[in-house]
């Protein structure tokens, strides 16, 4: 497997990766120990070493463990998809949540719910189809002269599409009272109340997306040098873009199907990854792997404790920490063209 060998160098090629991984492990632990309920970190530790009351065991294993695992998957998916979308649009602001990919996914699920299909297995492909639709819209906008070359204008176009789709989602859910209780979830995502069973139908498509990413990383990196160089190296730019769009749709659709729309993770995570790893997309992608879950889990932990005994939706927290990053990126005079 020369391809894999080339893209999987050892840890010493990634300064900072060891630190990030240990931070991620600590965050996962914190996610098991901290919650909105009466089970304290001390009780949770007792459970982890094999003891604890029945209630503590239930809270840790049936409530906190699933949302931690789901947070890991959602974080990886959204972080990686953000980095990929930014690479093919050559725009550091291209974020699935901002450009309407997430909104397209949530909209598709909402339409499905209204039409009466509620099977969890159907939800994943529908969400991914919706995300694909959103991606195709983005790529068409990128082709428009003037809009595509200006990062901020692309985001404005995306924000318009996003708001439109989110408004339509609210509208059809409001019209349909059966789905009324799920409205919040499909407008602002959350990890609360999700079960491990929700995660299983997503796994296969995420594995496919992962494999595709590994095979596409090198052509994508050569695409960054310009279309001619990429062609000269024997890659097909059109095919590469199409595969990346497919990967983004699989990842964003999968994440939205389990956690609802969660914005800004795909902006903040690649931003931080580039800051650590430099401009090479392959290194950026590796750093997105620990950074994505780190952001999602920290946001989720904060969401649990700030308004206890209630919880905030995860999407609210990620937006709170993502919006300032967006402003910072735009205000930085030299907006990097990717």
């Amino acid at each position: 497997m020369p391809m894999l060998a080339a893209t999987t160098p050892s840890l010493r090629h990634f300064p900072g990766m060891g630190g990030l991984l240990s931070l991620l492990v600590l965050t996962c632990l914190a996610s098991l120990l901290v919650g909105a309920g009466p089970v304290s970190p001390r009780d949770a530790i007792t459970v982890l070493v094999g003891g604890g009351s029945e209630e503590a065991r239930f809270t840790v294993t049936a409530l906190r463990l699933p949302r931690t695992l789901i947070g890991l998957v959602v974080g990886v998916s959204l972080g990686v998809s953000g980095a990929l979308l930014q690479a093919i649009t050559r725009n550091p602001l291209a974020e699935p949540g901002l450009l309407g990919v997430t909104a397209g996914s949530a909209f598709a699920v909402a339409v499905m719910l209204v039409l009466g299909a509620s099977a969890a297995t159907l939800r994943v492909p529908v969400a991914q189809l919706g995300a694909l639709g959103g991606c195709l819209c983005v790529m068409n906008v990128v082709r428009l002269r003037g809009v595509g070359s200006d990062p901020v204008r692309l985001v404005l176009a995306g924000a318009a599409l996003s708001s439109l789709l989110a408004a339509l989602t609210s509208l059809i859910l409001l019209m349909d009272q059966r789905a009324a209780d799920e409205i919040r979830f499909w407008v602002v995502g959350s990890l609360s109340g999700r079960r491990l069973a929700d995660l299983i139908p997503v796994i296969p498509s995420l594995l496919v997306a992962g494999l595709l990413t590994v095979t596409m990383a090198r052509p994508l990196a050569s695409l960054a040098l310009g279309e001619r160089v990429a062609k000269g190296l024997g890659h097909h730019p059109g095919l590469v873009r199409l595969s990346i769009i497919l990967i983004v749709a699989l990842l964003v659709g999968g994440a939205t199907a389990i956690a609802g729309p969660v914005a800004f993770v795909g902006l903040v995570v690649p931003f931080a990854a580039r800051a650590i790893a430099g401009p090479d997309i392959r290194r950026t992608l590796w750093f997105c792997l620990p950074l994505g879950p780190l952001m999602v889990l920290v946001a989720d932990i904060v969401a649990r404790i700030v308004v206890a005994p209630s919880e905030l939706p995860l999407g609210v927290l990620t937006a709170l920490c993502g919006a300032p990053v967006l402003v910072a990126v735009v205000r930085a005079r030299r907006l990097p063209m990717l």
């Binding site: 919650g35 909105a36 309920g37 009466p38 089970v39 209630e55 809270t59 409530l63 906190r64 919040r184 609360s192 109340g193 649990r304 308004v307 206890a308 005994p309 209630s310 919880e311």
Partner: peptide
């Protein structure tokens, strides 16, 4: 109330 955390269902 606001939606109660599932951890506080008791």
């Amino acid at each position: 109330s606001d939606p109660l955390s599932l951890e506080n269902l008791a």
